[in-house]
């Protein structure tokens, strides 16, 4: 199993790829750095920064910019307006870009024939195939109430797992309706199949607050939710059960 950690997009992307060498990752790594160059809000010369300043029209940007903004609009519609590329006022589609970048890197690996791999970017996971023959991937969900511990282990052969929360950066996710951070939960994890949408929806669902989010997720066929409340209590949509590793500690 090749393991590689790549600093990019202000965070670190981790790769676990079966039957691969580092050279096999080159196209996926190049794509991540290219996307960072287009979408970084920290780089003054990125397309997204120049678009935000009015130096570029949308039509002058890389075509991916329009595609990403369309996706942001679609996620906003699917989540009762709890997702926006302008949640804090300024143009910032980062809530879509990171998970989407992980999914694109995963797809490049699959297209190159590496069908058993796990790509994790800034705590959001896309995995496919099996790490070893006959065994599904096992993804730990960090417990924000207990540093260094896990709240749950989910398992599967084609999984997207995205977590939003206040653990690292404090209350930075805003409810676009109020401009204020949501209250009640430390973190919210969505489990689905494709990370781009799963990750953006996790950001939106966290902004909803825990109870609206659980109701919302329960009626979405493509995602299941795990919420960890401020007091550490764990709640989940009933369908999450099919992803949970057996045994109380996931090791029976």
């Amino acid at each position: 199993m090749l393991r590689h950690a790549e600093p990019v997009m202000g965070t670190v992307f981790s790769f676990a790829v079966r039957d691969a060498t580092l050279a096999d990752l080159a196209p996926a790594l190049a794509e991540l750095h290219r996307l960072d160059g287009i979408f970084s809000t920290y780089r003054p010369q990125s397309d997204i920064s120049r678009l935000a300043r009015g130096e570029l029209e949308l039509g002058q940007c890389d075509p991916l910019v329009a595609e990403v903004l369309d996706h942001c609009t679609a996620v906003g519609r699917e989540t009762d307006g709890y997702f926006s590329a302008r949640a804090a006022g300024a143009l910032d589609p980062s809530g879509w870009v990171k998970g989407w970048a992980v999914e694109r890197a995963s797809r490049l690996l699959t297209q190159a024939g590496f069908t058993h791999h796990n790509v994790t970017g800034g705590g959001d996971v896309q995995c496919t195939g099996e790490p070893t023959p006959g065994r599904p991937w096992r993804i730990g969900i960090a417990d924000p109430a207990r540093t260094g511990q896990l709240a749950a282990v989910v398992t599967g052969r084609h999984l997207a797992v995205a977590t939003s929360g206040t653990a690292e950066r404090g209350p930075h996710i805003l409810d676009p309706h109020t401009g204020r951070p949501p209250v009640g939960a430390l973190s919210l994890t969505l489990v689905g199949e494709r990370l781009a949408r799963t990750d953006a929806c996790a950001t939106a669902a966290f902004a909803m607050g825990p109870h609206r989010a659980l109701h919302w997720a329960e009626h979405r066929p493509d995602v299941e939710a795990l919420v960890i409340l401020d007091d550490g209590t764990r709640l989940a949509t009933p369908g999450l059960g099919r992803y949970l590793a057996p045994g109380p500690a996931g090791q029976d």
Binding site: G10, T11, G123, P131, G140, I141, V153, S187, R234, T237
Partner: peptide, 30 residues
Amino acid sequence: YALPQLNQEAISAQSAQIDSVSGATYTSQG
């Protein structure tokens, strides 16, 4: 939303034999 299968105890990452971690880690410092 209290899933019977969802244990409320801490799970040691060492014993859980995990391949990767999902958590609210956004930055390289995190």
